[in-house]
Amino acid sequence: TFVEFNGKKVEYPTPEAAEKAAKKLAKKLNLKVTKKNGNYKLE
């Protein structure tokens, strides 16, 4: 499962880990999380 932000793509071993990381990053970077095709994107 990938988390995409600032043009970077980071892969996580589980969807749970990706979701957790996405939410944490979104909060830190003041972005919102969108889920697309099972992957997460911060914008």
Rank of each mutant, 00 (worst) to 15 (best):
T1C: 15
T1K: 07
T1P: 09
T1G: 07
T1R: 09
T1I: 13
F2P: 00
F2V: 09
F2M: 07
V3W: 01
V3L: 08
E4S: 07
E4Y: 09
F5P: 01
F5L: 09
N6F: 14
N6Q: 10
N6D: 10
N6S: 07
N6E: 11
G7V: 00
K8P: 01
K8Y: 13
K8A: 09
K8N: 11
V10F: 14
V10C: 14
V10E: 07
E11K: 15
E11P: 10
E11L: 15
Y12I: 01
Y12F: 11
P13F: 06
P13W: 06
T14K: 02
T14H: 05
T14D: 07
P15A: 13
P15V: 11
P15T: 09
E16S: 09
A17Y: 06
A17I: 10
A17W: 06
A17F: 05
A18M: 01
A18C: 01
E19L: 14
E19I: 07
K20S: 11
A21M: 08
A21W: 07
A21P: 00
A21D: 04
A21N: 04
A22E: 00
K23R: 13
K23M: 14
K24I: 14
K24M: 13
K24S: 13
K24L: 12
K24T: 12
L25Y: 05
L25S: 01
A26V: 02
A26F: 00
K27P: 01
K27I: 11
K28R: 13
K28E: 13
L29C: 14
L29H: 14
N30M: 07
N30H: 14
N30R: 10
L31N: 01
K32M: 11
K32D: 05
V33F: 05
V33K: 01
V33S: 02
V33N: 01
T34H: 08
T34C: 08
T34E: 08
T34K: 08
T34F: 09
K36V: 15
N37Y: 06
N37C: 14
N37M: 06
G38S: 05
G38P: 04
G38I: 02
G38L: 04
G38E: 06
N39L: 09
N39E: 08
N39S: 11
N39K: 05
N39D: 13
Y40R: 03
Y40K: 03
Y40A: 03
K41D: 06
K41W: 15
L42G: 02
L42I: 12
L42C: 03
L42N: 02
L42K: 02
L42D: 02
E43Q: 08
E43T: 10
